[in-house]
Simulated assay, not measured.
Amino acid sequence: MVFSTPISLAALPTNVIGGVVMMFVMTAAPLAAVACNHSIDGANMIQWHLVGMYAPSFVAGRLISRFGMPAVLYTGMVLSGACGVVAALSTTLPAFCIALLCLGIGWNFMFVGGSTLLAASHLLHERAAVQGTAELIRGFLTAIATLAAGPILETLGWAELNLAIVPLLLLAAVMTHSWVRSGARMTPA
């Protein structure tokens, strides 16, 4: 049955939550930077974010092979959480850059790891439907996160917006931990 095994119940939230957290914070970051009186020249924070999102792809597969899938997934979660902590503690331009770099790398590890795990969690004939369903869920929830970022930033503030990602990351960690504890293999039987 689709999305009923411990591995798929770890893969889906990791993939989806990684995307939701990334879009939620990334969408609000330029608005928060302007509100903190940083000039538009502060756009280099988005450049650092993009480097964090895509540069790790060159080594993510090797990191998974060397350290294992759980380590890469947990590292992605920790880095995404570090983004929230750095952003909540400081509104300086370097803090924005560091936070968004951490967010990008965290997203990459959660996305690559979650996608790999999702594909490995189902039989070949199920993979297209599972991937399509996962992408639909991720797209829908990231759209909601993107639309909610501005109003939440306006209502709660930058620090609180960043702290709001912690429960989501904890949920991803709990689901990943459940899979690891189950001892399930990465390939279906």
Rank of each mutant, 00 (worst) to 15 (best):
V2R: 15
F3L: 14
F3G: 02
I7F: 06
I7R: 15
S8Q: 15
A10G: 10
A11C: 09
N15E: 12
G19P: 00
V20Y: 00
V21E: 01
V21T: 12
M22Q: 11
V25H: 07
A29S: 15
P30I: 11
A33F: 03
V34P: 05
A35C: 05
C36K: 10
N37D: 14
A43T: 08
M45D: 09
I46Y: 07
G52R: 09
A55F: 13
F58N: 01
V59F: 15
A60R: 05
R62A: 11
R62E: 08
G68V: 10
V72M: 11
G76K: 01
V78R: 01
L79H: 06
C83N: 14
V86G: 01
A88C: 07
S90E: 05
T92N: 06
L93A: 04
I98S: 04
A99M: 09
A99I: 09
C102D: 03
I105L: 12
W107K: 00
W107L: 00
N108T: 04
F109T: 00
M110W: 01
G114T: 02
G114W: 03
G114Y: 01
S115E: 03
L118S: 05
A119H: 04
S121H: 06
H125F: 08
R127F: 05
R127E: 02
Q131F: 02
I137M: 05
R138H: 08
A143K: 06
L147M: 15
I152Y: 09
E154I: 07
E154R: 06
T155V: 05
T155I: 03
L156G: 00
L156K: 06
N162W: 08
L163G: 00
L169I: 10
L170W: 00
W179G: 01
M186L: 15
P188L: 01
P188E: 04
